[in-house]
Amino acid sequence: MKNLGIFFFIFSLIFLFLLIPKIGSDVQTFKILDVDYNTDKAKLFPYLIGVTILVITILIIIQDLRKKVKIQATNSSAINSQKIKDVGILFVISLIYIVLFEPLGFFIMTPVCLVIFSWFFGLRKWFGLVVVPILITTFVYLCFEILMKVQLPKGILEWMFF
């Protein structure tokens, strides 16, 4: 928790002294009915939040020092490198799915991604790896595209739908 307290303490200082002053710096004209408005009012609420976070993090750091808590995050000690690696792999697969969602399209990415995710989570049965991805892709298509008129990206298969 102490690490987190220090992180947010530094973050709040950056927020208060670097980010907030930049608000409105790119606003060229701000005049309504011959009355000049400045952008300071837009800074008020962020300042209040920044100060609140600063105060809370100071209190968190003091609380940790009083309790003499060892420098370690709650629960984080329980994470071993394998678990971090697994989370990282899952994040990368998710990111690839999102990046290729529009270029390759929903119909290619969804079944492929379902197979990869299911394999990652330890599924080895052919029904789950073959039938479920096809069923889910079809179901999502029928529900969203046909029933709810949501335009799903077709990607390289766009030509099939015209």
């Binding site: 991604c113 995710f117 789950g128 799903l152």
Partner: peptide, 21 residues
């Protein structure tokens, strides 16, 4: 879980995408 979580992820993506495409 190994079946439902991949499916949940897909619904999350489609659900998020469908708000504003």
């Amino acid at each position: 879980k190994k079946v439902i979580f991949p499916v949940v992820f897909i619904f999350c993506v489609i659900g998020s995408y469908s708000i504003r495409n």
